[in-house]
Amino acid sequence: MLPFTYSRPRNIGEAATAGAQPGTEFIAGGTDLLPLLKEGVRRANRLVDINDLPLGGIRHEAAGVRLGALTRMSDAADDERLRRDYPAVVEALLAGASPQLRNLATVGGNLLQHTRCLYFHDAAMPCNKRQPGSGCPAWDGQNRGNAILGGSRACIATHASDLAVALVALEARVVLGARHGEREVPLADFHRLPGDTPQIETVLEPGEVITAIFVPAAPYSRRSTYVKLRDRASFEWALTSAAAALDLAGDTIRQARVAVGGVATKPWRLPKVEEALAGARADRSIFHAAAELAAQGAEPRQFNAFKVELMKRAIVRALADAGSLA
């Protein structure tokens, strides 16, 4: 752990200026960053605490819901309208971390949490994400938790967020604030594939912060669900998860949204699965056939090959659960 300076700006402009300095990390809830700093996995000379920025609050509008980036996970999970109108989002929030951590962690920070790859977390190990060019020992190592989708030879680290999976299924957008205003990016385009530069994880520019998450109200939002599979019943990241949302006309699927987590290097939307479902009957055989398409392009490694089958089954379960929602 390096010595660091600490500042607590009052507005986005100050925060963006401070955050653009090399060696700077923004800190909000700190539930992800502090352990990483202590173990020397992340190294920062400056911490810019953004908790005083006016980025809290949940605002429901006709077009959707806007979650301020500093909204605590527990506050979002307790929001009755969010639970009613976007159940997958609340289910994903409640499936994440532990109650104590959710009281502290923010929804914006959740999207930026780091991977659980074992090699990333051991600062003595090579890791292209932590130390570009040093290699990827997970490729031939303990890779049970690693990705089967979206990886590269340089990195197969899984994106760890549950929330992001539900949000990407519901076509959420992130609002990014900088010194000179804001821009909006679809969450699906916010995280980057590792390629040859796994250390660059998002499209955030230096100094840029997530200010809000906007989830559009869509015909499928209310009929959405999140299924998470893990080794213990709580306080554990997903081995595989699936978010599904259905817009039904009787038992015909008008449109569907499906995304998976725990299996990919970023929150992973499955357009081919969605296309196969659109216009089809909402029944298990259709769900099974559509879920088969999820594994296209999957590249399993030694200890994570089971995720190919598990992912399909999780998708079927999520679709079945969503289909049976009132």
């Binding site: 090699y119 977390h121 213990r232 019943a233 709580s234 554990e236």
Partner: peptide, 16 residues
């Protein structure tokens, strides 16, 4: 041992 932390070496939690 690669999972040398309480986040990665899993002991049961209350929910289990």
């Amino acid at each position: 041992i690669m999972n040398a932390s309480l986040a990665d070496y899993l002991v049961p939690v209350n929910a289990d």
